[in-house]
Design a binder for these strands. Structure first.
Lengths: 299, 299
DNA sequence: TTTCTTAATTCTCACTTTGAGTACATTTTC
DNA sequence: GAAAATGTACTCAAAGTGAGAATTAAGAAA
């Protein structure tokens, strides 16, 4: 028995926002996330994945961050055959691609991520699925107090506010309740598109990470074109977070962070008053831009 | 050539706070973090590590979280021999152990983490090392504007505030500047204790993660005994963050979150007025307790 | 031209959260 | 009993946030 030997695979959640909708790169007609073996000639995991993605997709990847390493035994039921001894380990990455670089984003590999998680898009209204979802979850809960509290908390019911960050927890609750892949494949509508293995869970991990990250780190700009209006920026953040934002307050928040500057040009193509164009300030020191959560420090 | 085959190793940053000092579990007289091969009989990475840690250390691990997966080629220069083909992949975990369970915390495996990062402890004063550290960093920077900005930002110089979260970035800057392992082993004092390979970097990753996490997730309580006073809690947070906290404001912040409740008992062993004892409320729903960063949501 | 529509941009104001410090209470130690 | 040490409760100004009104600038319709 070879201890510690495993098949290592890299798997990417590649995100772009086009037409105000967040999209994710898929393979097999939307059935899986792109992945490949970790080849040992690469210098590091990160650079290995970058090279591999760029050769596969032709899209330059601006931002790349490790998500999570998945290694549960029962993840991929079909993975038994790979050698008998060695386990499968998948290292997930989150990558961001600029709209302008994602040309061909209409090509079928790019799928709107709300196709997979329809209950996560609260931009215009509470998604309709939530009604049936609540019903089925509560049916599963069978009156168990803790389960009910968890449902209410995660899905913003019963006076609790919807928290957009809890994508993964919501998916995992649904998984526990038997409302994911097998259930959907039995023909139920509205609970999202399925993926192979645990790819949808990895996607949920990526969405959750990105939603949390945009709040304290200026990664949104990795998804924006060089020049953009404040409304375009707002629409992008809305697309990612799945929430409608308050325009004046959004613009106040952005401008006081001093992360962007006017280009001097105006956008002309739209209806209504033309908007100023902005660009991300690239004279910002690396990590400078974090809205830190504060402890009550003394002195 | 076997593609995708790798040696997988689990590596743990196990933290406990005793005597108001954060400590980390080590092996080899403080030279390395505990680690071991990922054995394929485990159900998942997480459970594998938990079993392994608890059998090795006899400490129950309350909280366990994946940190990062390290796989750079040049990480461990000595790891060439392991088989010629397969790469080494290390999956790092952060684990928290309660003070009461870390009895024997005086045993030499538990080391104060500021032994490894003396410049990170700002509880009583700016650490003295910072003077020499600045000097050496600026000497390395050689006037390069970007490098200087980065130094000032990371080390809170030149009007910038010290940010306790940037542990990893600071370590990596020092690494770039050649102020880590080899440098220290050449006999320089005050730049911290070294570890084998990149273990000190993994420790920095763990500290950084924990410092960030305590601000929006109630993980501190995983380090506290069942009953504690508010000052004990404050001292623990101070120990982890390396900052002195404002007592009245800290207690206000804690009490309005309603995460703890009075036990009704009082602490008796200390000098001065006895303090109320509190316990963590275990009727809190799992994730309920997060101080979320807000976007300017509309409606 | 005038008016309507759409969107950009600026301001206001109440309310909440923080930073910082003060005052007072209750115990042990000298 | 006074001093020292700690616990606990307030106060108050400054900063930050949520919600919305008001104003400006363009094209389109009447």
């Amino acid at each position: 028995m070879v201890n510690g030997l495993a098949h290592a695979e890299l798997i990417a959640v590649l995100v772009a926002v086009t037409d105000n909708d967040p999209r994710v790169m898929t393979v097999n007609a939307g059935d899986a996330l792109p992945s490949g073996p970790f080849e040992s000639e690469h210098r590091s995991l990160q650079s290995g994945l970058r090279v591999w993605i760029e050769s596969q997709t032709k899209h330059p990847v601006g931002y790349l961050e490790q998500l999570y390493t998945f290694g549960d035994r029962d993840r991929t039921p079909s993975a038994e055959g790979v050698g008998g001894q060695a386990r499968q380990i998948s290292i997930g990455y989150l990558g961001l691609v600029r709209e302008q670089d994602a040309l061909g984003a209409d090509r079928p590999q790019w799928r709107g991520w709300y196709d997979y998680f329809p209950w996560e898009d609260h931009r215009t209204a509470r998604p309709e699925v939530l009604g049936e979802l609540y019903a089925r979850l509560h049916h599963w809960a069978q009156g168990d107090e803790l389960r009910c509290q968890r449902i209410n908390f995660l899905f913003g019911q019963n006076g609790m506010a919807w928290n957009e960050d809890l994508v993964l927890q919501r998916y995992e609750l649904m998984f526990e309740a038997g409302l994911t892949e097998n259930f959907i494949q039995s023909g139920v509508q509205g609970f999202g598109r399925v993926m192979t293995g645990d790819h949808r869970r990895i996607l949920a991990t990526g969405i959750a990470r990105l939603r949390a990250k945009i709040k304290y780190h200026p990664v949104v700009f990795e998804l924006m074109p060089d020049c953009f209006t404040l409304l375009q920026l707002q629409r992008t953040v809305e697309a990612l977070s799945g929430l409608p934002l308050h325009k004046p307050n959004f613009r106040r928040q952005i401008s006081q962070q001093e992360l962007i500057e006017e280009t001097g040009e105006m956008s002309g193509d739209m209806r209504g008053r033309p908007a100023k164009l902005f660009r991300y300030r690239n004279d910002i020191v690396e990590a400078r831009a974090l809205t830190s959560v504060r402890l009550p420090v003394s002195r």
